[in-house]
Structures are given as structure tokens and as C-alpha cells.
Design a protein around this nucleic acid. Sequence first.
DNA 1: CCGGATGTTCACCT
DNA 2: GAGGTGAACATCCG
Length: 260
Amino acid sequence: MPELLEVEYYRRLAEGTVGRRIAAVDAPDAWYLQGGVDAGQLAALLPGAVVAGTRRRGKLLVIDLDGALALGLRFGMAGRLLVDGSAAIEKLEYASGRDEPAWERFRLYFDGGGSLVVVDPRRLGGVSLDPTFDGLGPEAATLTLGQLRRALERSGAPLKARLLDQHRIAGLGNLLTDEILWRARLDPNRPAGALGDAELRRLQRVVRSTVGELDTRGGSHTGDLYGARVRGGRCPRCGAGLTRAQVGGRTTFWCPAEQR
DNA sequence: CCGGATGTTCACCT
DNA sequence: GAGGTGAACATCCG
């Protein structure tokens, strides 16, 4: 999916639907509905409900409705949100900005016009009813030192794999994680539990400052390392050739000279 | 033509 | 139990 930053942009966009009453729901793709919900249930439950607010933890967006109902939206790698036909982000990497009607996996229509639509060409996202944050770690954007320590302690797994594990820390994706580790000058392959106190503190500060800075810049793809994440790419700080390898199952770039 | 890509989940290994 | 791997999803891009 988009990573936490993009989902946060979606959440801000979805805030524009607060106070609006659902007139109809269209869930044409049964595969997209999670948790055993079906289109018939949604059609019975949602119309008449008013959007009460929005929440986000990591990459999960929750739309709260009155009557103790809530919708959970996940966006996979290529999912986008449209409200009244407009997107918070016009173009995602690896996803065209086009909106083929066939890619619209979920639609809410509101009284008086307007709509909320999930467009997801690859069908990697999904919609659930009454989602919980159980199973999601603490929010990366506000990660505390204690939370980071708990996420990493006593683990021999690569540092990057732990940072990507949504059960441990919620919100970091592949691009943000590479950027954070590069800024913190930490090798993604370091055993997660082996970080010293100074390194832990440095990493915690960098997680929060990077999330905050890239939020302002406009998304996960606005990091300093991003442009160098190509074969033959060089470290933007020292010019050394970046190493490219699979870490935690994902393609990873890092500076072998600076990241230890 | 082929391989990968802002992700998650699950089965199946070691 | 802890980790790792590969598959699946469907489209775009180099």
C-alpha cells in the first residue's frame, strides 16, 4: 500500500465525509471484502448511517459511523481513495493515475450526492467491518523509545524485518524503512536485538523525524535516498555505491560505507 | 519478453 | 517458537 503517510493523506481526505449520511453502498468485488462480510450485509447495515469520524493506525484507515459501526480500509500497494471524484494523491509509484471503473472495488454514495471510492487495480487491499487495532503495533509516527525497544528486543531477525513487521510497529513500509535506516546510519541486516542504547535512541528520533519530514514533503517517495534506489545508485551523502539485496523479503538499498 | 514493485496473508520449510 | 521463502493478487514500467 501506500505507507502510513499516504494512508494519512487518505484519512484527511476522508474527513471531508464526516457528517454525511450514506445513501447506498456498492461492493462489486466479493474478494475485496474481508472478515467474512458480504455485500448483502453491507447493503443492509450501512445505508442511513452517518460518518462520525476517521481514525488511522499504521496503514489501516477506519471510518467510524454512528450506531457503533465502522469500516476498515486497507489499500495494498496500489490502492487509492477518491472522495467526490478527487484524490488526495494523483499518482502512486507503480500505479497509474487512471481510474478504470473496473478497478473500483468499493463505493459509498452519500445523501445529496458525493461518494467515497476505493480504487485498487491490483486488488491487494480490502474492506472490513468493525476492524480493530488488535495485532497492530504502536504507531510509527509517534513511536516512543520504550515502544521501539520492545519491538526490537531479544530478536535475532534483521533490523529492517522488525521495522517492517506491522505487529511490532505499525505504518512503516519498504521505502520509509530504507530511508530511516539510511538516515540513522544503521545496517538493515543488524540483528534487531543487538542495538546499543545510543543507537536505539538515534533510531527512535530518526523514525519520528523522517515520518514528519516526508509527510510535509508529500509522501514515502520523497526521501533523500529514494532517487538512488536503482541499480548503480550511489549514497547521496558519501557517494559510495549502494548495496542492493533482499532483506526481510523486500528489496533493500543501503550504503555499505556508512550504515553499520 | 521478463522481472519487479509503497503490501498482506498463508502454507510450508528449516 | 522463531524466521525465512514463495505464492497469490493484477497492472505498470523499464
